[in-house]
Design a protein around this nucleic acid. Structure first.
Length: 838
RNA sequence: GCCGAGGUGGCGAAACGGCAGACGCGGCGGACUUAAAAUCCGCUGGGGCACCGCCCCGUGUGGGUUCAAAUCCCACCCUCGGCACCA
């Protein structure tokens, strides 16, 4: 017997779950087999109807489908089905993000090969995914760990390389000691590894990068999108972090080193007369060169200490400023003043030039530093009402320049322009734009990923593998080390190769690609997943792309979504694609929790959907998840809550199957007929518009009301057989995208030919949906005092007259004088505004 | 610290300038039953009364705009996400 943890007590399903009465255990497999057999979800490419490409983020095959997957997939399937019923040819594919570290960890821990582990998981998950009853066309499944897919990762890498968008360089990289690999900056969260939460360290090594920064400016342009959440756009904008300013050189020509100046970047060129020191990041290459012999020991100790500190320590905002004087000076190009040079870890090496001009009066960080080291704090931008006294904190706002040579007296905004112009004229600086975003580090020192198709030859150096030799296969006979080192490092058969240029012995690159490379273009592969000649069929890409609607979790805001946008723009510039944005509309569903906590294996509170599906049916689980609340907000899984879904479907099963012939011989009552017809059309309108906008919860509540209306009509027995049949038929059609199996069964049992899922969604008539009588709301001074049933087309004058006559309103008017009567057209509301009687 | 989203019954929520709490969960009462489950019916924001109805209060807090505010504006408090020494 299946047990479920309900907080304190453990309860059996038998005791808490309402029994479904439509036998989902029988009808769901029956219809799934029938759909399969009829090829109902096969998506032909030559369908002339308008296309709709609706995609859900593909899952990582971790082993079992959990309720979070269902929450992502069931509602998006309902939406895709709705689009299909609206008359689109819909592509709603599914695949597996099959490369990644968990497979390798399983190999190290349990001795099972990543390939076996992954393929077993995929097989299990495919079965579970089928149980959702979604319209996935499984002939289009994409599996990124198969050579037929990753071959094209390698091919794309070569195209990027050819176009100077992939390069290799030695750079300090973020290293996760637990995952034993470098990470992209995007994969670091608060100084910890995004995947395993281990504090990261830094390592200098040869790495492969993709030149995403070349597209920084275009990636900031979101105008090609139709509908994206504003917060995702904001997060991307912040991530890219564009700053406009001026890069200026502070001369060090007198020090006799090779470099003639230290370049700094500033957004506040207007404060340059207030510079009283210069700060270089500890990793700045000029630090050793500009250190005097007597300072060397101290500086080296500081730099070494900074290097050893973890990012978490270095990043903490509240710590006191530290730093060391190098013993040398540079020259301020604007006023010729001598400026002492420090190194301090509040300057970060990778941003802009890695050097900061210290303007303590106008930057709080510089102010703190200057105070600590007793440096002068000259004011060059007067704060409002400034009395000439020393500042107690930095003034970072605008103002009028003082003590700034020829620029004195200018407002800061104007001074910025004038001083930038001056710097450019004098050749001491230039306007510059810098970005926070850095190039995308794609190499991983792991086995279970796409091998980077490059060989190293002693004679020819680094040589890309020719396209005809792809794929570079990942060897399956790998030995996994408990140390976590990549088996590729020791695999002779993989390592030894010959140089494609000179045919002499050469060595293969052992790094593999970040799995985000796989997901940066998988939406292109779905259109021709088995093409062996090219990554995608350009004809079909023209026919299907871009993706019209993408849905998935918000956790991919900056990584996957930004990388995909970059890929599409880069491939467009190579002439391989005809569009600039991969995903026109984006919708982020919320997170499903259990007992108020995020589900996770470590907490042991992961809700497995399978027992519920087996017992209550996929339709029930679908309905419950969609009814829970707004999709974007997520919600808490509750065992008692799902009973609401079962009860409703039981009622639907019971009521929709009542034959019109058994309606009872009562004479037809026109008012009853009109009432049911009106409810029907109101429901169609509501469900249509709600499904259109992912508002599943209110769509279902409308269908629940409609079910009750049908039930009432049945009990009255006076609506007529024809209307009863029409109402039931349209009710089933509205149910079809939400609960596809029970809808199909009802469709058959009510005498309709297969299949309900090839039918158009019902349309409503505004005239029939319009109410005949409405409630006239009578307010006195904004408070509701009476409600009167009136004809919907009651003229304004009549409404006002009725309102003033209302006994309840009259009572309120006692001793007061009517000042004004407000009528709200289209609302049937009258507000009587009064003043005290004289 | 900065940016964004959000605070509505016992709970999930709906309404997004015009009847606050639709729909559902839970609870209470009733019908059916030997009994229980299931099902069906009724009630369910708080308080008051001269209780078949009516009145007062009520959408995080305080102000404002409006004939009318959960909804718009300002300030503050709290919760959740993102960024965080970015020059």
């Amino acid at each position: 017997m299946v047990e479920v943890d309900m907080g304190q007590e453990r309860v059996t399903f038998e005791r808490v779950l309402v029994e479904p009465r439509w036998n989902p255990q029988a009808i769901e497999p029956k219809w799934q087999a029938r759909w399969e057999e009829a090829g109902l979800h096969r998506v032909p490419d030559d369908d002339p109807r308008p296309k709709w490409y609706e995609m859900t983020m593909y899952p990582y095959p971790s082993g079992d489908l959990h309720i979070g997957h269902w929450y992502a997939m069931a509602p998006s399937d309902a939406h895709a089905r709705f689009r299909r019923m609206q008359g689109y040819r819909v592509l709603h594919p599914m695949g597996f993000d099959a490369f990644g570290l968990p497979a390798e960890n399983a190999a190290i821990r349990h001795g099972i090969h990543p390939f076996t582990w992954t393929m077993n998981n995929i097989e299990r998950m495919r079965k579970q995914l089928r149980s959702i009853g979604a319209i996935y066309d499984w002939t289009r499944e994409v599996n990124t760990c198969l050579p037929e897919y990753y071959k094209w990762n390698q091919w794309l890498f070569l195209q990027f390389y050819k176009h100077d968008l992939a390069y290799r360089t030695r750079a300090p990289a973020v290293w996760c000691p637990s995952c034993q690999t470098v990470l992209a900056n995007e994969q670091v969260v608060n100084g910890r590894c995004e995947r395993c939460d281990t504090p990261i360290t830094r390592r200098e090594m040869e790495q492969w990068f993709l030149r995403i920064t070349k597209y920084a400016e275009e990636l900031l342009d979101f105008s090609g999108l139709i509908d994206w959440p504003e917060r995702i756009i904001t997060m991307q904008r912040n991530w890219i972090g564009r700053s406009e300013g001026v890069e200026v050189g502070f001369s060090i020509a007198h020090l006799g080193v090779q470099e003639k100046e230290v370049r700094v970047f500033t957004t506040r060129i207007d404060t340059i007369y207030g510079v009283s020191f210069l700060v270089l990041a500890p990793e700045h290459p000029l630090v050793p060169k500009l250190t005097t012999p007597e300072r060397r020991a101290q500086v080296e100790a500081y730099v070494e200490n900074a290097r050893r500190q973890s990012d978490i320590e270095r990043l903490s905002t509240e710590r006191e400023k530290t730093g060391v004087f190098l013993g040398t000076y540079c020259v301020n190009p604007f006023n010729g003043e001598r400026v002492p040079i420090f190194t301090a870890d509040y300057a970060v090496a990778w941003y802009a030039t890695g050097a900061v001009m210290g303007v303590p009066a106008h930057d709080q960080r510089d102010f703190d530093f200057a105070q600590k080291f007793g440096l002068p704090i000259p004011v060059v931008v007067a704060p409002p009402g400034w009395d000439g006294q020393p500042l107690t904190q930095a003034w970072e706002g605008p103002g009028v320049l003082v003590n700034s040579g020829p620029f004195t007296g200018m407002p800061s905004q104007q001074a910025k322009t004038a001083m930038a112009d001056y710097a450019e004229r004098q050749g001491i600086g230039r306007r510059a734009v810098v970005y926070r975003m850095r190039d995308w580090l794609i190499s991983r020192q792991r086995y279970w990923g796409t091998p980077i198709p490059v060989v190293y030859c002693d004679a020819c150096g680094m040589v890309p593998v020719p396209e005809k030799d792809l794929p570079v296969l990942l060897p399956l006979d790998a030995q996994f080390k408990p140390t976590g080192e990549s088996p590729l490092l020791y695999h002779e058969g993989f390592l030894r190769t010959t140089c494609p240029q000179c045919a002499r012995p050469a060595r293969r690159e052992t790094d593999t690609m970040d799995t985000f490379v796989d997901s940066s273009w998988y939406f292109l592969r779905y259109v021709s997943p088995h093409d062996t000649q090219r990554p995608w069929d350009p004809e079909l890409v023209l026919r299907w792309l871009p993706v019209d609607q993408y849905t998935g979790g918000a956790e991919h805001a900056v990584m996957h979504l930004l990388y995909s946008r970059f890929f599409v723009k880069a491939l467009r510039d190579m002439g391989l694609l005809h569009f600039s944005e991969p995903f026109l509309r984006l919708y982020n569903q919320g997170v499903i929790t259990y007992l108020g906590e995020k589900m996770s294996k470590s907490r042991g509170n992961v809700v497995p959907p399978d027992p519920y599906v087996q017992r209550l049916g996929a339709d029930t689980v679908r309905v419950y998840l969609m009814f829970l609340g707004p999709w974007e907000k997520g919600g808490d899984w509750s065992v008692s809550g799902i009973n609401g879904a079962t009860r409703w479907l039981n009622r639907v099963w019971e009521v929709f199957r009542r034959p019109s012939s058994a309606l009872g011989g009562k004479p037809v009552n026109e008012a009853s007929r009109r009432a049911l017809l009106r409810k029907l059309h109101q429901t169609i309108k509501k469900v249509y518009n709600d499904l259109d906008r992912f508002q599943f919860n209110t769509a279902i509540s409308a269908l629940m009301e409609f079910t009750s209306a049908l039930q009432d009509a049945w009990e009255r027995g006076d609506v007529g057989a024809d209307l009863w049949e029409e109402a039931v038929e349209k009710g089933i059609l509205m149910l079809a995208p939400i609960a596809p199996h029970i809808a199909e069964e009802l469709w058959e049992q009510t005498g309709h030919p297969f299949s309900v899922h090839t039918q158009p969604f019902p349309r409503w008539s505004e005239a029939l949906a319009a109410a005949e009588t409405v409630t006239l709301v009578v307010q006195v001074d904004g408070k509701v005092r009476d409600r009167i049933e009136v004809p919907a087309d009651l003229p304004e004058e009549e409404a006002k007259r009725l309102a003033l006559q209302s006994a309840n309103a009259q009572r309120q008017l006692n001793g007061r004088k009517v000042q004004r009567v407000v009528f709200v057209p289209g609302r049937m509301l009258v507000n009587i505004v009064t003043v005290p009687a004289p």
